[in-house]
Design a protein around this nucleic acid. Structure first.
Length: 344
DNA sequence: AAGCCGGGGAT
DNA sequence: ATCCCAGGCTT
């Protein structure tokens, strides 16, 4: 099949089968930008609610630039990869201060924004501004690898160059936005990772991987993540007035910028609380699985007359816990142990 | 080039 | 358990 016929068929397929999503109903570059950041490493179904919530809180670049980091992270709470939220707010301030409030309309200009890499720059440029540059995401890598029979690894710089060259070669310069979205949508709905719908695929007769029975072998990826265990022991202080303590995470680690109960991390699962307080007990271990870490968390509850004075901490009531951005592990624990958090 | 960053859903 | 998701930043 010729390249022209390929793109024509794909665009026709997209017109019929694409999902109706709010960021496809607009030309507003800010809306499209928000959607692309949220959808990094995130499924459409998970990101959709956050997209609406984020825009209701921050309807334009200026409102995002004016917000506090805590506000932005609070809206982002539970979505993960929190640097996306911090970087996007930084970038909103870049737009206000360095671009006169106008989102740059070129690939190079967009690449200057914090949190906007090659994928997101190509996506915004093509979808919002009609710039002819191809996007490369997990869907596109998979579809291209199978249809054209590309065995180069998608997670090496050499392989990326191969796919990038191919993607830009087949990109119809007249409608890059629709084509890019069609490539991703096809990967998400038809050429899926585990059980692709080959039998009903419109490209069945010309697909290299199908013809050579390589669908399960492509795309090729090399790196595999190593999962390490961590033992997190959170101290839930409560005084007679229902006040407690949170501390803000700041290091180069998970949950940067979020709040947590004061933490004692240990190398082994042997956490105990000394009975020097009026009343203490430790929860059962709470297992929280991240992509690259298995967290084994215990919550030590300490009922005391006087809260300890620690650095970098906030004293707040139990009710106010919902006003702070918390890791999912902690918000879930509070929600499932509401009897321990009166007033939440 | 390699390591790190969340959370959820499908299998 | 394992994989993957409209990836990007830091070192």
């Amino acid at each position: 099949m010729t390249i022209k016929a390929f793109s024509k068929q794909l665009l026709a397929w997209y017109q019929v089968y694409h999902r109706k999503l709010p960021w496809r109903e607009t030309n507003n570059a800010y809306f499209i930008w928000v959607s692309e950041i949220i959808l990094q490493q995130t499924r459409v179904e998970q990101g959709l609610g956050y997209y609406k919530r984020f825009l209701s809180h921050f309807p334009d670049v200026q409102s995002l630039a004016d917000a506090s980091e805590d506000e932005v992270l609070h809206v982002w709470q539970g979505l993960g990869y929190y640097s996306r939220a911090r970087n996007m707010q930084f970038a909103a301030r870049q737009v206000v201060h360095d671009f006169q409030g106008m989102i740059p309309e070129t690939y190079e200009g967009l690449m200057r924004l914090k949190g906007v890499g090659s994928y997101t720059a190509a996506a915004i440029a093509s979808i919002a501004f009609g710039v002819p540059c191809a996007v490369l995401d997990g869907n596109v890598y998979r579809f291209l690898a199978r249809y054209f029979g590309i065995a180069d690894a998608t997670d090496t710089s050499k392989g990326k160059t191969v796919f990038e060259t191919l993607a830009n070669k087949i990109l119809p310069k007249a409608e890059p936005g629709a084509f890019n979205q069609a490539m991703m949508e096809f990967g998400a709905l038809v050429c899926t990772p585990l059980k692709p719908a080959c039998e009903t695929c419109i490209f069945l007769s010309t697909c290299y991987a199908y013809k050579h029975d390589l669908v399960q072998q492509l795309p090729v990826k090399i790196k595999k993540v190593q999962v390490r265990k961590r033992f997190l022991n959170f101290l839930v202080y409560q005084d007679a007035n229902g006040m407690t303590i949170l501390e803000k995470r700041t290091g180069k680690d998970i949950w940067h910028g979020l709040y947590q109960f004061p933490l004692i991390e240990s190398a082994t699962d042997d956490f105990e609380l000394e009975a020097t307080h009026h009343q203490v007990f430790v929860s059962a271990p709470q297992i929280h699985q991240l992509t690259h870490q298995t967290l084994i968390a215990r919550f030590g509850h300490i009922y005391t007359e006087k809260l300890p004075e620690k650095q970098n901490t906030v004293v707040l009531s139990i009710e106010q816990l919902k006003e702070f951005p918390l890791p999912r592990l902690i918000s879930r624990y509070i929600e499932t142990h509401s009897e321990l958090f009166p007033g939440y």
